[in-house]
Design a protein around this nucleic acid. Structure first.
Lengths: 321, 321
DNA sequence: AACAACTAGACAAAGCCTTGACGACACTAT
DNA sequence: ATAGTGTCGTCAAGGCTTTGTCTAGTTGTT
C-alpha cells in the first residue's frame, strides 16, 4: 500500500547487547532472559560474548512492554502475537459477557439509572461513565439494550422535554452512550460467525443509536457485522452489501425532519430494496411513523417494530443469546 | 598542564598527549592504553614522549565512551566501523521508548497498516477491527494517534481521492475508528485528575475525530474529560463549561463546507470566546485554513496547529504521558 | 632524584550465561 | 473461605569471559 522506509542501504544491521537493550526498553536483564527462555519472545543471535539483539527485536520488546503495561500478561501477548493475537481481542469481552448472572432479558428488573443522571446533572462525565461501565459489565448486551440504553434514551428525551436537561447534557449522555456502545460492539465481535449483517443508515438519516444497538446485539449473538455508520448513499449500501456478502442489511430509519427530508430517505430505502440482490434480506427499523411503515411494507423490506423483533430475526440467522 | 598542541601554531592537526585525552574523554589513562592494546580502538602516533592522539582519535574515543555508557561492550564496539558506531550512538529508531516525551510521532517506527486496508478492501469488518485492536492494545494512546489514527485517516483520504476506496469503505473505516477510539477513551479515563477539559464542536461542525482523539489523549494523560460530542450550540458549550467547571474548553473546527457554514461556525466560536469566563481557557484546533486561523487569533482563544501542540498544553495542565 | 610515559603481566570486579527456585499474585475448583 | 494451580518477575549459584585497574620494571626528560 505504501512504501515503508527503512534504513539506508549498505548499513550493516545494528545489534545490541543485552545491557543496551535493557536500557533501551526499560526491561530488566533478568526479565529479558526470562522472556526469551520461557516464551521465546525474541530470539536474539549469539556470539561468544552473548546475546545480540536486532533492531526488530528491540521494537518487538517495546511493543510487548507496552502491552504488559496495559495490563496484558506477557504469556498471552507472546503466544498470541505469533498467531496474530486473535483470541486476545475477542476473548476477554466474550468471557466477561458469556456467563453473566441474569441471563435472558425478560423478568427485567428495573435498574436504577438515577446515579447516571445525577452525574450528568453535575456534568461529571467520569462518574457517569464509570456508572454506565459498571452496568455494562454486569449486564449482557441484551440487557444493556433493554435496561440501560433504551430507558436512558427515553428518560433523557423526557427530561429534555421537561426542560430538566440542557442540550449540552443531552449531548453528554449521547456521547457517553455512544462511546460505551462502540466499545461493547468491539468487545462483542467474534470470529466464527455463521452469517454476517451490514448496518447503516441512508443518506440524510443521522440517527446512529438504532443501528449501533442492533450491531451490538448481532455481534453479541455471535453474528458477524459490517458496521458502516450513518448517512450512506443508497448505492453505496448496495455495493457494500454485495462486496461483503452479507445475509442481511439492517437500515436505521427514524424518519424525523422535514417532509422533503423524509421522502428523500424513503426514496433511498426504495432504491436499496430494488437493487439489493434477492438473496440479501433487508431489514428496516427505527421509525414509528405510520406513513413510513406502510411505505416500507410496499417494498420487499422487513419492518422491525422493536428490538425484540430484531432479536427474533437475528436468531433466525443463527444468533444465540 | 602545559601546551596541549605540540605542533607549531597554524598547523592544522593538533595532537594530544594521553593525559589530555584522558581529561578530555573522561577515560582513565589505563583504560586508554588497555583499549589500544587489546582492541586497537585507536592507534595514536608516537614520538619520544609517548602517544599523540589526533583530533579524530579523540572523536572516536568519545563515540566509544558514549556507546559503552549506553550498554554496549567495548569489545564489540571496536569491531564496528566509524560510521556504524556513529549510527549506533545517535540511532533515532531505537529511541521509541513509550514514555519518551520528545517528538510526537516523527522518527518513530512506521507501522504497517496494510492489513487493515486489506481487510477493508474485502469489507471484512471483523478482521479490520481485530487488527486495529491489536495495535491499540500494544500502543499507547499517543502512539495510537500518531501511528495509527492519523496515518489511517490520511491514507484513507488519499486512497479515496485515487478512487481506490468507495464511500462505503471510507465509512467503514470511520465507523471502525470511531468505535475503537470511543473504547479507548473509556479505558483511559482515570478518577483522580488534576484538571478537567471539555470537548465539543460548535453547531454545524460535524467532524468528530479531532475532539475524540484529543479527549483520548487528555484522558490517557490523566486529565479529566467532559466529552460532549459534536454539533453543540455555542451557548450550550458555555453553560456546560461553567457548570462542569473545566480548566479549558477544546473545540474542534475543521472549517469545511460553504462560506456561509464556515462563517456561522466562526461566529459560534467567537461567541464562546466572549462568553466563557476568563479563567476558562479556550483551545481551538482542526482547521488549516489561514482565514479561520487569523480569525481565531483575533479572539482570546488558543490556536492548536497539531496534536503535538495539543499535548504541550495538556502537559501544562498536568497531563503525564 | 623526581617525574611522566611505556610495556607486559596479573587480578579482581563485573558481565553474561544457564539452571533452578522462591514469593507474590491471580484464577479455579471445591 | 480454602486449597490447588499457574504465571511471572526476581534472585542465587556456579562457570566462563570481559574489562578496568594495578604492579613492576624500564626508559627518557627535567
Amino acid at each position: 500500500m505504501r512504501g515503508v522506509k527503512y534504513k539506508k542501504e549498505g548499513e550493516k544491521k545494528m545489534q545490541y547487547p543485552i545491557r543496551a537493550v535493557s536500557k533501551l526498553t526499560g526491561l530488566s536483564i533478568d526479565t529479558l532472559r526470562a522472556w526469551e527462555r520461557r516464551y521465546q519472545a525474541v530470539t536474539p543471535e549469539r556470539d561468544v560474548r552473548g546475546r545480540l539483539y536486532s533492531e526488530a527485536d528491540v521494537q518487538k520488546l517495546h511493543l510487548l512492554r507496552a502491552g504488559v503495561e496495559r495490563g496484558h500478561t506477557i504469556g498471552r501477548l507472546t503466544t498470541l502475537s505469533d498467531q496474530e493475537l486473535k483470541a486476545l481481542i475477542e476473548n476477554p469481552a466474550a468471557e466477561v459477557r458469556a456467563f453473566n448472572p441474569m441471563s435472558g432479558g425478560d423478568g427485567q428488573q428495573q435498574l436504577n439509572l438515577e446515579p447516571v443522571f445525577s452525574a450528568i446533572e453535575r456534568f461529571d462525565y467520569t462518574e457517569a461513565d464509570r456508572e454506565l461501565g459498571r452496568l455494562a459489565t454486569l449486564l449482557s448486551p441484551r440487557q444493556l439494550v433493554h435496561q440501560v440504553a433504551l430507558p436512558l434514551m427515553r428518560q433523557t428525551g423526557d427530561a429534555w422535554h421537561d426542560g430538566k436537561l440542557s442540550i449540552a447534557q443531552e449531548h453528554l449522555i449521547s456521547a457517553l452512550l455512544r462511546n460505551l456502545l462502540g466499545a461493547v460492539v468491539r468487545l462483542s465481535i467474534k470470529t466464527d460467525s455463521p452469517s454476517k449483517l451490514l448496518f447503516s443508515t441512508p443518506a440524510g438519516e443521522l440517527h446512529e443509536f438504532g443501528i449501533l444497538l442492533s450491531a451490538m446485539l448481532a455481534a453479541s449473538g455471535g453474528l458477524g457485522i459490517v458496521y458502516l455508520g450513518i448517512n450512506l448513499p443508497a448505492e453505496e449500501i448496495v455495493v457494500a452489501a454485495n462486496k461483503s456478502d452479507v445475509q442481511a442489511v439492517v437500515v436505521g430509519l427514524v424518519g424525523a425532519g422535514s417532509e422533503k427530508a423524509i421522502s428523500k430517505q424513503m426514496q433511498q430505502v426504495r432504491q436499496v430494496a430494488d437493487e439489493l440482490p434477492p438473496r440479501t434480506e433487508l431489514w428496516i427499523g427505527g421509525t414509528q411513523s405510520d406513513e413510513i411503515i406502510t411505505a416500507i411494507k410496499q417494498t420487499r423490506a422487513l419492518w422491525l417494530s422493536d428490538f425484540d423483533e430484531l432479536e427474533k430475526h437475528l436468531r433466525r440467522l443463527g444468533a444465540r443469546f
